[in-house]
């Protein structure tokens, strides 16, 4: 049985928006487990509760109910937090510090041995390709540089559990690739990575498992391949000598090409469509199965509320 790096059980959190307004329930009994050494994607539409969950794990907010443990320790213990590296949604940094000063400050907070602070800071600066800009004031940094520095402070203490909230948001393709490579490098080192993202292709590339959060509860969790395989299969057909508009079989999509129709149909209706086409005198030109993507799976959960 896999060792558990992060366990969240029955997490509830509501917020009071202000006077004369009803409390808003953001997390409604959220539960999940992240195995040691895996890269775990946390997906959900805006307002689903991803950041609230991450804030609860990192101790920034107090859950109303539920239990969180990090590497077997209650999450509010300092020993648990010493094992976490956290990168927030936005790169929250000090404008008055240089990149190096910022990391030295965080090394002090982590109580790294004083003799090793300089070497470790230099190491993580190199890791995020920021050595050249380390002595510049952070107010002169671009968004991508700030994001990398923010990631550097999360990596400083060689965390067992790396929690990244939207690490690739606002980055250009090169920045995204760099962050993706860093996450993969951490995975190689055996670090457990838990990260939320809106960029599904990145999640599909990096993650071993994903959880889909909708309206404060986990609606689906599992390996990407498993989740996609759960989806009902579909087929794409191409035919000539008929009109898709006249077909009675329900179609998922249709498109008229220069000399043929192209239609997509759910697996359960494939044979009915073939029979209907044959009866109407149309000629089937091509038939191929369609592999469902994680993106389609996720979007269906977002749009349908997972129900």
């Amino acid at each position: 049985m896999a060792e558990i790096a992060l366990s969240v059980e029955g997490l509830h959190k509501s917020f009071d928006p202000g006077l004369f307004e009803r409390r808003v329930d953001v997390l409604k009994g959220l539960s999940l487990e992240v195995h040691r050494g895996e890269t775990f994607g946390f997906l959900g539409p805006n307002g689903a509760g991803k950041t609230t969950t991450i804030k609860a794990i990192t101790g920034l907010i107090r859950p109303d109910r539920g239990r969180i443990s990090v590497c077997g320790l209650p999450h509010d213990r300092l020993e648990a937090r010493a094992r976490i590296g956290f990168m927030a949604e936005q790169p929250y940094v000090y404008n008055h510090l240089t990149g190096r000063e910022f990391l030295e400050f965080h090394a002090e907070l982590l109580a790294l041995p004083r003799a090793r602070v300089g070497a470790r800071v230099a190491e993580v600066l190199e890791l995020v390709s920021m050595t050249g800009a380390a002595n510049r004031a952070m107010r002169t940094f671009s968004k991508g540089m700030l994001q990398r520095l923010s990631l550097a402070q999360a990596l400083l203490g060689r965390p067992e559990l790396l929690i990244l909230d939207e690490p690739m948001s606002g980055l250009d393709p090169v920045g995204r690739r760099d962050v993706r490579d860093l996450i993969l490098a951490e995975k190689e080192r055996g670090t457990t990575v838990f990260f939320s993202s809106h960029i599904i292709p990145d999640v599909e590339t990096i993650c071993d498992r994903v959880a889909i959060l909708v309206d404060g509860t986990v609606r689906a969790v599992g390996e990407v391949r498993e989740l996609v395989a759960q989806e009902a299969e579909a087929y794409e057909l191409s035919f000539v000598g008929g009109d898709a508009v006249d077909l009675e079989t329900p179609l998922l999509a249709s498109h008229r090409g220069s000399d043929a129709w192209w239609v997509r149909v759910a697996g359960e209706h494939r044979d009915a469509l073939i029979r209907e086409l044959a009866a109407s005198g149309a000629r089937l030109v091509a038939l191929s199965p369609v592999r469902s993507t994680l993106e389609e799976f996720v979007l269906r959960h977002y749009e349908g509320g997972g129900r």
């Binding site: 101790g59 976490i84 956290f86 927030a88 929250y92 940094v93 907070l109 982590l110 109580a111």
Partner: peptide, 14 residues
Amino acid sequence: DSRTVYNILAKPVR
């Protein structure tokens, strides 16, 4: 307000 406190309090700091 600028949320730099997030990075501090997510570390082993009371």
